[in-house]
């Protein structure tokens, strides 16, 4: 099987599975909305303070939703034995992993990215800055999924896996959070944002090159 058709085959498979788990995906989507909506109650409805915390709130909410969705990435395949079949198939596991991560991002996180500018506007962020925030999320959230895949693979079949994944992965999310929020804040202040985008893209390239390797190594360990 060529790499491209393998990639697409896994993607299609993930899409079909996602269609059977629509409520799962909807839950993650609404989790994002609810977490973001909690903050006006916490900091007060005053537009000024909401605008200050807005970019951070939307980013943290997106980050937590992405974390919440992580267990979906490999757990089902691990339990029903498909993961073992992937490994035995002789096809490159790294490629399957990349495809699965991409599918995971596409079905659980992309809807959040698309919704994010509207949530941003709720926080009094100007529409231009909101779109820039969506763009930082568009580049930043795949990095979160890539890093998260390592944690999801390491904690497969481990007790209290979800809490443990959070503990392992959240510290590694900090750089993405810093530059994602930084880019949005820069846009709000009318400052040049290319630097932030360059660094986010660098994070994306680096994690795309390294994380799938670590994830497939972790999956092999989990299946031993």
């Amino acid at each position: 099987m060529s790499s491209r058709s393998l990639f697409l085959a896994v993607l299609l498979r993930e899409f079909k599975i996602s269609l059977t788990q629509k409520t799962d995906i909807a839950t993650i989507f609404f989790f994002f909305l609810i977490v973001a909506s909690l903050f006006p109650f916490a900091v007060g409805p005053d537009t000024g303070s909401l605008r200050t915390v807005g970019p951070g709130v939307v980013w943290v909410a997106a980050l937590l939703s992405s974390l919440l969705a992580l267990h979906r990435m490999f757990e089902g395949d691990f339990i029903d034995g498909s993961l073992e079949q992937f490994l035995l198939s002789g096809e490159p596991l790294v490629l399957i992993v990349v495809s699965k991560i991409f599918a995971h991002w596409l079905f659980t996180t992309l809807p959040i990215v698309i919704l994010s500018p509207f949530v941003g506007m709720q926080f009094g962020i100007s529409s231009e800055a909101s779109w820039i925030m969506a763009l930082t999320l568009l580049i930043g959230t795949p990095v979160l999924s890539l890093i998260g895949s390592v944690g999801a693979a390491l904690t497969l079949g481990v007790r209290s896996g979800a809490a443990l994944t959070a503990l392992l992965i959240l510290p590694l999310y900090i750089p993405v959070l810093i530059f994602g929020v930084g880019g949005t804040v820069a846009a709000l202040q009318g400052v040049e944002t290319t630097g932030h985008f360059s660094i986010l893209l660098a994070f994306l390239c680096l994690s795309l090159a390294l994380c799938p390797l670590a994830t497939s190594a972790a999956l092999k360990i989990a299946l031993e």
Binding site: V150, L154, L172, I174, P175, L210, A214, I221
Partner: peptide, 27 residues
């Protein structure tokens, strides 16, 4: 299995430590 899994985590961590440090410094 714990040896191997934690080794992967430690390697991922050691790659990330300088990135985290410089990001935090910039922030």
């Amino acid at each position: 299995r714990a040896d191997k899994a934690s080794a992967i985590l430690a390697i991922v961590g050691v790659v990330n430590v300088p990135i985290i440090y410089f990001s935090v410094k910039w922030w």
